[in-house]
């Protein structure tokens, strides 16, 4: 279906988030975090399309967040800091990508996990630079030169997160329907075919990997701006796992799945924590189990089934015009 309609859908969704954040002020922070994680999950979805699961993308989240924390005293503007932080994430993604591209499946996942844990350890061990687990606090940033009040700043972070989410979502959709994106599905089914077509699979996967690192970087940067405190926990494997969890929860087929999953995850977590402070993990775990057992297509899949559409394999939803802003 037309891109214009999905764009309208995305905009409507963004407006709904703004309305919700306005009606329930404390949800503003939660929704900002969900949007940030949604953007990072887009990167996971990108790799999932090639059949690869990275258990180490939290590293790119943390790289951007720590870049922001280290450079904020010198570059105190979000608009300048964002490209630097995301650029560094992508650059590291490129270097790491050159190595991990040689591996597939479980080896790909584990190698990413290992590298992210090395980075996590560095953040802890280089204590005199990073303050270890205490983390680094970000000073308030200006937005395109404007100094904002605390209240306005939290709005600015949410709104920039939403704009970035729309742009990233649109970009991923365009990428998915480009030859480079279509080739990703080829890696999943049978890699040699790409070779026969004269398309180098490693390059295809490397491009996706670098883009996914950049998307994780955007997510990490927004998280850093929202919490204003970065700690090594951002790079820990549980954070990487969380991103994969959200991808499964939301449904891997569509751009909307990433954001639906992130919103569902964060809201479940915060409501579970509000109602049973000491057993919220159990609720979160049960939700995922239920999704895996009864709705393998994730929340997005449930939505589609309810609408009576045909069950969508990965990619079908996006091309059907349902997914993606």
């Amino acid at each position: 279906m037309s891109g214009a309609r999905t764009l309208a859908a995305g905009l409507a969704a963004a407006l709904l988030v703004v309305a919700l954040a306005w009606a329930v002020p404390w949800l503003r922070f939660v929704l900002t975090v969900a949007t940030a994680k949604g953007i990072a999950v887009l990167g996971i979805l990108l790799l999932l399309r090639a059949g690869q699961v990275s258990f180490g993308h939290a590293m790119y989240l943390a790289i951007a967040a720590y870049t922001a924390a280290f450079l904020a005293p010198r570059i105190p503007d979000a608009a300048l800091l964002l490209p630097v932080a995301v650029g560094l994430s992508a650059a590291v993604g490129l270097v790491v990508g050159l190595f991990v591209m040689r591996y597939r499946d479980i080896f790909f996942g584990m190698l990413n996990l290992a590298l992210s844990m090395v980075f996590y350890s560095l953040l802890e061990k280089l204590y005199s630079i990073t303050h270890g687990t205490d983390g680094i606090r970000l000073p308030p940033l200006t937005f395109a030169g404007a100094t904002l009040s605390v209240e306005a700043q939290s709005w600015a972070v949410l709104l920039s997160a939403l704009v970035l989410a729309l742009v990233a979502g649109a970009a991923v959709r365009v990428y998915w329907s480009s030859p480079l994106g279509e080739a990703l599905a080829g890696i999943k089914t049978r890699e040699q075919r790409l070779d026969f077509l004269g398309v180098p699979p490693r390059l295809v996967l490397l491009a996706a990997y670098v883009i996914s690192a950049a998307l994780a970087g955007i997510g990490g940067f927004i998280l850093a701006m929202a919490t204003r405190q970065v700690t090594p926990a951002l790079a820990y494997w549980t954070t990487s796992g969380e991103l994969v969890f959200i991808a499964v929860l939301g449904g891997a087929g569509s751009v909307f799945g990433a954001f639906l999953g992130a919103a569902a995850y964060e809201l479940t977590r915060v409501y579970a924590a509000a109602f049973v402070a000491d057993a919220w993990q159990m609720i979160l775990g049960s939700v995922l189990l239920l999704v895996i057992l009864f709705a393998p297509g994730g929340i997005w899949g449930i939505g589609q089934r309810l609408l009576g559409r045909r069950a969508a394999g990965p990619g079908a939803a996006a091309t059907a015009g349902e997914g993606g802003p």
């Binding site: 309208a8 995305g10 409507a12 969704a13 329930v24 949800l27 609408l307």
Partner: peptide
Amino acid sequence: MSTSAHRGSLTRRSALGALGAGGLAIAA
């Protein structure tokens, strides 16, 4: 972020609306 203006988006919107209402209930 999460819903659309299409037909059938009602389910999702009302689902989120319910969440929002829950939030308001807590907020009150």
